Amino acid sequence: MQEYEDFSADNPVGQALSKPQKAAAILIAMGKPVAGKLLKFFAPSELQTIIASAQSLRSIPPQELENVVAEFEDLFTEGTGLMDNAQAMEGILEEGLTPDEVDGLLGRSEALNKLETTIWDRLQEADPTAVGQFLSREHPQTIAYVVSMLPSSFAAKILLQVPEKQRANIVHRAVNMKTVNPKVAEIIEQRVAQMIEDLKGDENTEATSRVADMINEMEKPVVDALLGELEAISSSDAAKVKPMVFLFDDILTMPQRSRITLFNDISSDTITLSLRKSDADIKEAVLGSIGARQRRMIEADLAEDMPSVTDRDIAVARRSITQEAIRFASLGQIKLAEEEDSEQAA
């Protein structure tokens, strides 16, 4: 191949073929099996030059191709005219080189780098519940920007984790979102990147959460016994699960201020349903945490007999309240137990 080492620039249509164009034409005319075996005799720089020539190679009439073939010894007879040369050259490369080598010569690696997933693609791989709980600590404008950058279905799941009283404000900000200063966008994206890393920090969080959800479906005596046995087996596992375990009866151990914060975000219908068949002390703890007018309405509803309400309906209402309590606690907005109780439990 020494005769073709000194490659010149590609010639425009209508002029004689340059040396790299002739080499490309011959390789394409050979076909994949033979041409693929010859590729190892070219230096990488030569191959790149031939590839570039093939991509811009004009259609070659049979007679002109025959003249080119005649310049080489022991090569095949004339071709039939060349079209789609870039694709043909790619096929030849794939026959004689590894996929990585082909990608490198064709510049595919650079193209793939340009298509690297964005921070918003990476965020969608995270648990929307965890993302929403994390973002709840951020400024509403930041949350609005983040949800505006995500698909609607994923953004909706995130928004549902934000306290209900903040949602309208966030939606309002997202609807009226103007062009964001690039520097501000960069700061937010850096924060999102850090959030993704933080969410990956504990790979067992999801498993622990599933276990806690299972325990939260049990009756309090069973839960207390189970957590005691888990503590004996593994204190570290118990320490992971306990903060996520909160039953409806545990409302009695909550500080009054935390109860007020919690039930301020719960609808009257849910509160009414959860208090049916409840003990008097729990009813008083809940009703003593809401406004006087709301309390009178709920007490009036509780006084009415509702045969259509099932135990399952009551359990669902109570579970929705305990889930909200756990979410608020994870955000540091409420405490699930008085300080002295927490210290004794520790």
Rank of each mutant, 00 (worst) to 15 (best):
A88K: 11
V211A: 11
L230T: 10
S235K: 11
Q161E: 11
K242N: 08
E94N: 11
Q323L: 03
G36A: 00
T142N: 00
D250A: 02
A130L: 07
L17D: 00
Y145V: 08
I233H: 07
G81W: 12
M89W: 01
N264F: 06
K22S: 02
D305K: 02
A212C: 06
S59E: 15
A144N: 01
A315L: 06
I188R: 01
K22D: 02
G36P: 00
I60R: 02
L17T: 00
L331F: 09
P221C: 02
E284L: 15
M254Y: 01
L302D: 06
R319G: 04
S274E: 09
L302N: 05
E338I: 14
E284V: 14
V180D: 00
T117C: 08
E324I: 03
A300K: 06
E340H: 10
E94H: 10
T205C: 01
D279H: 09
N264M: 03
P12H: 06
Q55E: 15
V223E: 05
E66H: 12
T118L: 06
G96I: 08
Q256E: 12
Q166G: 03
I158H: 09
Q2I: 10
T179Q: 14
D121E: 15
A207I: 10
N181L: 04
Q48G: 07
V13F: 06
P12Q: 05
A285G: 11
G81L: 08
F7S: 14
F41S: 12
P61Q: 12
K22C: 04
D74M: 09
E66Y: 09
E125Y: 01
S109I: 15
L75T: 11
R210K: 13
L105Y: 04
S8F: 11
P307E: 00
A317R: 04
K277S: 15
M1E: 02
E324G: 04
P163Y: 06
T98E: 08
E229R: 13
I260S: 07
F42Y: 13
K157V: 07
L273Q: 08
S330D: 05
L247D: 02
A144L: 03
E189L: 03
N169C: 10
V34D: 07
L252I: 13
F328M: 13
D84S: 09
I260D: 13
I170K: 08
P243C: 01
T270P: 10
L331A: 14
D311V: 03
S152Y: 08
I314G: 00
V171S: 13
